[in-house]
Design a protein around this nucleic acid. Structure first.
Length: 276
DNA sequence: TCGGTTTCCTGAAAGC
DNA sequence: TGCTTTCAGGAAACCG
């Protein structure tokens, strides 16, 4: 499941191998994965062909390819999406919905088993429009502070876990890193966001930044589907204290970890250590 | 506006 | 062994 650290790892891999490359051909095998213009594989392919990649950026869980002549490509990996840089002669694997071919003899394969992700072609600045313009601050930027978190959460009855998973509030946090951050901060996932104390916010802000930075350093968490642009897996899943460990002993106190549903998301926490 | 639920989708795992 | 059911989840749509 690609969250901020996984998408950032993919971005770094793509940027190092594809910056400056020119798209020579676009193959769309599943038009519904073209999100803009919606389902229009021909317009998508014609719009991208001949463009040179100037930069590859990330905003939340979105990847943004900037091209010459003022156009952009947005990619979202959804749950099971992969962006793999391969040799131009490489075989197209099952569930490969879009292939971008480049002048360097390389190809970018977009695979997505569960089809929750997609690609979008823009001819106007996507940073000024939905969905990017509605995203909350980057968790690793100075805009995300404990004071901001405290102020933003006032009056909110929603569970703190649902609150930090909301991309319009904070961009990039997903289910894995939310559980891990709440564990480190000692806060129960179902606590109402509006009831967070200033001290809670200080611990939570630090915990979110720490787990994301450690996740990036480890090349992401490889659960089920995720691999980096070069096909390598990340290793942060080995450092998970709670995610995916329901019933296992808490790494801090040894008591069994509890699984609950919060906002429809499976969540694991330690009732003893997460008492706030 | 807010907060909760449903929908999309497929493969792995669990259950029978 | 083989079939059926359940579960996983990001984001948008929908509803009250």
């Amino acid at each position: 499941m690609p969250e901020l650290p996984e998408v950032e790892t993919v971005r770094r891999g793509l940027a190092s191998s594809l910056t400056g490359a020119v798209i020579t051909a676009v193959e769309v095998n599943l038009p519904k994965q073209v999100r803009r213009p919606r389902g229009d594989a021909q317009a998508f392919a014609e719009g991208l062909t001949g463009r040179r990649i100037l930069a590859i950026d990330r905003r939340g869980k979105y990847l943004i390819f900037s091209f010459t002549e003022g156009c952009w490509l947005l990619a979202h990996l959804g749950m099971s999406g992969r962006l793999l840089v391969k040799d131009g002669s490489a075989e197209v694997a099952p569930h490969t919905h879009i292939v971008l071919r480049f002048d360097k003899g390389l190809a970018l394969h977009y695979q997505d088993v569960r089809q929750f992700g997609g690609m979008a072609f823009w001819t106007t600045d996507p940073f000024q429009a939905a969905p990017l313009v509605h995203l909350g601050p980057e968790p690793l930027s100075e805009a995300f502070s404990a004071a901001w978190l405290y102020k933003k959460s006032r009056g909110r009855k929603i569970a703190v876990k649902s609150f930090i998973l909301n991309q319009k509030i904070l961009a990039g946090v997903g289910n894995i890193y939310a559980d891990e951050a709440l564990f480190r901060a000692g806060i129960r996932p179902r606590k109402a966001a509006g009831r967070l104390s200033r001290a809670d916010c200080v611990r939570l802000q630090k915990a979110i930044q720490a787990v994301l930075e450690e996740g990036i350093a480890a090349g992401g968490s490889s659960i089920r589907d995720y691999v980096a642009a070069d096909g390598h897996t990340g290793s942060f899943q080995r450092a998970h204290a709670v995610y995916g460990r329901k019933g296992a002993p808490c790494p801090r106190c040894g008591r069994p970890l509890k699984g609950v549903l919060v906002g429809g998301r499976s969540s694991v926490y330690c009732p003893h250590c997460q008492s706030s």
